[in-house]
């Protein structure tokens, strides 16, 4: 992907009913960036990611991914990997780990085609990478939260996307699982893949070095390298109205 920017927001405004969710977002994220998006709950992190994934439309302004408007037919050809916030999935649904990851190949396969040998090989390699190969035949409903999260990450990897969006990938998971997820993020970064990771948990910054940080609270508070952005002032502004981080930061983080 020779485009200089993976994601560009241009005077982007998003409302839900009459509530402003994102205000005047102007942002250009260079290709290959490993971006951390921080902000309190309700700051619009998920909406920002969902806008990039093409799931919600702005009231005004626009977003481009690798220089293109991410329409549905475009996503079919140029995948955007999206790992949504961990939610309780339909545990009853009769589908195995392997089959879920293979769903990620749907866009590449196109209509009327079933998976070929190379698709099967790729899915096995990815399952190996997220350490889920032994559980490939397991129904998805019989997995723990951390295992499920790894399967959904594997599905995003199976899309072979150059842009991956992670929404709170570590939330609700134990520390070793969180560490393994952030290790994977690092590997993806080394592969040159652009990753956007949203989190309200500042501890994530301990686990992982993001090369850019976006502080979001309905509008952009700050965007830049961590050493410039992670200052008590900016964090206080980002988390204004949320009591504990302000205090924590105030004590001299």
């Amino acid at each position: 992907m020779s485009e200089p920017f993976a994601v560009e927001f241009d005077r982007f405004n998003l409302n839900y009913d009459d509530n402003e969710v994102l205000k005047n977002i102007n942002l250009a994220i260079p290709s290959g960036t490993c971006l951390g998006i921080i902000g309190p709950n309700g700051s619009g992190k998920t909406s920002l990611l969902r806008s990039i994934a093409g799931l919600i439309q702005p009231v005004s302004g626009g977003v481009k991914v690798f220089g293109h408007v991410p329409s549905r037919s475009w996503r079919h050809r140029q995948p955007i990997g999206y790992v949504p916030q961990w939610k309780s999935i339909d545990r009853e649904f009769p589908i195995s780990v392997y089959e879920v990851v293979m769903l990620g190949r749907t866009g590449h396969l196109g209509f009327f085609h079933s998976p070929k040998t190379e698709d099967h090989d790729l899915v096995k390699r990815i399952l190996q990478r997220v350490n889920m190969l032994e559980l490939a035949a397991r129904p998805i409903g019989q997995l723990s939260g951390g295992q499920q999260q790894r399967v959904f990450i594997a599905r995003a990897l199976a899309q072979e996307a150059n842009l991956l969006l992670f929404d709170e990938p570590g939330t609700g998971l134990d520390i070793p699982t969180q560490e393994s997820i952030y290790r994977l993020l690092e590997e993806l970064h080394e592969d040159g893949i652009t990753t956007l990771t949203a989190t309200h948990d500042l501890m994530a910054l301990e686990f992982h070095h993001f090369d850019r940080i976006l502080c979001l609270n309905k509008r952009i508070i700050a965007f830049g390298p961590p050493e410039e952005v992670l200052t008590p002032d900016i964090l206080a502004k980002t988390f204004s109205g949320v009591p504990w981080p302000t205090k924590l930061v105030g004590r001299g983080a």
């Binding site: 037919s73 475009w74 866009g107 599905r155």
Partner: peptide
């Protein structure tokens, strides 16, 4: 099957 299991992700992948 994709639509039945996870309609939102089916849309992200570019399915109608």
């Amino acid at each position: 099957v994709f639509y039945a299991f996870d309609p939102e992700m089916a849309e992200v992948v570019g399915l109608p």
